[in-house]
């Protein structure tokens, strides 16, 4: 499989002494949308955050097994974690803009990576906001604080912020769970658009959402990966009994 983004092998993760992920084996394809579903506490967010090593902000985390991105071990000593994170961006559950202007929010990524030219920044900000389908709503108030926007707009600014450094992969951790249905719809359409240029991995507890937007779906339960297949197939014809129980609403 030449076009795989991530290749996860025998991966385990512990928070202190509590094991959160058990023997995960998974190949995530490039330029497709992969959804990760499962009941809360099943480890789906942990798996997602491992992919750009955000779990390392918690000191007690320990791991075993390997994860390769683009054929390279993401835990390799000489690899700088910052570099991985510029390639693998992240959008969070709650919209979390910085307490700065919309412009500064989007320009943040390029700036911290040493891009200073005003003209370049202007172009990047415009391009990113357009890419996140929010340019028309905010282009006349780029200097206003991002906190003044609605939740859905904030989340699209956060997506624009992520696009600004042109990552290859965008990790999305339940990006619509804090939003109203209309904003959710907009974000979902945006995600489908982004698929053309980005590999997207999205964690969601909303099965309909996974079915609507994703190409592949991973079902996780109690820290284990139960099933991974084409989305249509997983929802119409699950192989595992537990997957069937979950998608038919028997638990979760």
């Amino acid at each position: 499989m030449a076009n795989k983004a991530f290749s996860i092998e025998d991966f385990n993760l512990w928070y202190g002494t509590d094991q959160a992920l058990y023997q995960i084996n998974l190949d995530i394809p490039k330029h497709e949308i992969t959804a990760v579903i499962g009941p809360s506490g099943c480890g789906k967010s942990t798996l997602l955050k491992t992919l750009n090593r955000m779990t390392e902000t918690i000191p007690s985390v320990q791991t075993s097994g390997s994860i390769e991105y683009d054929g390279e071990d993401i835990f390799a000593k000489k690899k700088m974690v910052e570099e991985l994170r510029t390639r693998v961006g992240m959008v969070f559950q709650k919209p979390n803009p910085f307490p700065k202007s919309i412009f500064e929010n989007v320009a943040y990524g390029p700036k911290i990576h040493g891009i200073k030219k005003k003209q370049v920044l202007n172009e990047v900000v415009e391009k990113s906001l357009k890419g996140a389908a929010i340019w028309d709503e905010v282009h006349d108030r780029l200097n206003q604080n991002a906190f003044g926007l609605s939740g859905g707009q904030q989340q699209r600014v956060c997506i624009a912020r992520c696009l600004a450094i042109e990552p290859d992969v965008i990790l999305m951790d339940e990006p619509t769970s804090a939003l109203d249905p209309i904003s959710t719809l907009k974000i979902e359409e945006l995600i489908k658009e982004l698929k053309k240029d980005y590999t997207i991995i999205i964690v969601t507890h909303n099965m309909q959402q996974a079915a609507r937007i994703s190409d592949n779906t991973v079902f996780m339960l109690n820290g284990e990966m139960v099933e991974f297949s084409d989305t249509d197939q997983l929802f119409s014809n699950p192989k595992d009994k537990r997957t069937e129980d979950y998608i038919t609403g028997r638990f979760g």
Partner: peptide
Amino acid sequence: MISKNNEQYSVQEMIQANKNKKS
């Protein structure tokens, strides 16, 4: 819509270029 392929410069490339300064 962002299209990474048909533009004059790439942010990601510039980031890579800046990496040398990171010492």
